[in-house]
C-alpha cells in the first residue's frame, strides 16, 4: 500500500493573470481513494487537466508510476494508464454508445491508416461487458446518446474508464448532475474499484459521499491545497472550515 502511484510537486497553472493552480503538492498511493473538495473555482478541474495532459502546466512536476511524465496530450495520459471522467463529460452526442466508449482508440478490423475499418462487433461486445459493471439501463446501444438521461450518459462516461486497463482513475464531479438512484449506481462502481484495489481521485461537493467513499480528503482553496485530511481523523465540520477558509492546515499556513 505504500507505493506512490501519482505525485505532483509544485504543480502550477496560470491562465494569463489568473492563478488557477498554485504550487500543488499532492500524493496518491496504490489502492487509495482520495477525494478533492473545494468551492467552485478553487482549481480542482484545473488540477485534473494538468495531470491528464489536456493542458500544459505552467510549472511543476508530475510523477506517475515512479517516473516524471510530460504528457503532450490526453491520449498520452490514457496510454500511460490514466483514465478520466471529465466534468463536462467529453462525449459526442451524435455517436452511439460503443463509438463513445472507444472514441480516439477504436478497435480496428483492418488497418488502413486513417481509413482503417472499424471492428464494430468487438466494440459492441466490450461495451456490453463494460456497461454491465455500471448496471445502467440502456435500451439500445446503437442509438446516439443525445437523448439519453444524465445518469445514462454519466454511466457511459464511467464505463469508458472501466473498458480499458488503467492504473489510475480520475472522476471530476461524477454525480453532480445525477438523481439519487443514479448517484448510488455510480457510488457502487467506485466501491467496486476500491475492492479491486484500483486507485482513484474523485472530485465532489457531496460531503456524505466523500466520507462514504474516500480514504483521504484534500481541500483546494483559491488555487492552493489547504488541507490533507485522513477521513477517520476529521469531520464534516472540519472540512467545511477548510473549504471556506475558516481554517488552514498547519503545513499549508503559507498558502492562506
Amino acid at each position: 500500500m505504500e507505493e506512490v502511484i501519482l505525485r505532483t510537486e509544485g504543480l502550477t497553472k496560470h491562465y494569463g493573470g489568473v492563478h488557477a493552480l498554485e504550487n500543488a503538492n499532492f500524493e496518491l498511493r496504490m489502492g487509495e481513494h482520495v477525494a478533492i473538495m473545494g468551492d467552485n473555482g478553487a482549481g480542482k478541474s484545473t488540477f485534473v487537466r494538468q495531470i491528464t495532459g489536456v493542458e500544459q502546466r505552467t510549472s511543476g512536476k508530475v510523477i506517475f508510476g515512479g517516473q516524471e511524465v510530460h504528457f503532450k496530450g490526453p491520449l498520452d495520459a490514457r496510454q500511460a494508464g490514466i483514465e478520466t471522467v471529465f466534468q463536462n463529460l467529453a462525449l459526442a452526442d451524435d455517436l452511439d454508445v460503443p463509438s463513445n466508449l472507444f472514441l480516439g482508440r477504436e478497435k480496428i478490423w483492418l488497418n488502413l491508416g486513417p481509413f482503417s475499418i472499424l471492428d464494430f462487433k468487438g466494440m459492441r461486445a466490450a461495451t456490453e461487458k463494460a456497461l454491465l459493471r455500471t448496471a445502467v439501463k440502456i435500451p439500445n446501444l446503437g442509438n446516439s446518446i443525445r437523448k439519453m438521461s444524465g445518469g445514462q450518459r454519466q454511466c457511459v462516461a464511467i464505463a469508458r474508464t472501466a473498458t480499458f486497463a488503467s492504473k489510475l482513475i480520475i472522476m471530476d464531479e461524477p454525480t453532480a448532475a445525477l438523481g439519487v438512484q443514479e448517484t448510488t449506481q455510480v457510488e457502487n462502481i467506485i466501491r467496486t474499484l476500491k475492492a479491486n484495489g484500483e486507485p482513484l481521485i474523485i472530485i465532489s461537493h457531496n460531503m456524505r459521499q466523500v466520507f462514504d467513499l474516500a480514504d483521504r480528503i484534500v481541500v483546494f482553496r483559491r488555487g492552493r491545497i489547504v488541507a490533507n485530511l485522513l477521513k477517520h481523523e476529521t469531520s464534516g465540520e472540519d472540512v467545511v472550515a477548510y473549504i471556506t477558509g475558516a481554517k488552514t492546515g498547519a503545513e499549508y499556513a503559507d498558502a492562506a
Binding site: P74, R78, A90, L91, L103, G104
Partner: peptide
C-alpha cells in the same frame, strides 16, 4: 458533435 470531447479523447 463535440470538438472538445474529440480532442480530449485523443
Amino acid at each position: 458533435s463535440n470538438e472538445e470531447a474529440a480532442r480530449i479523447s485523443g
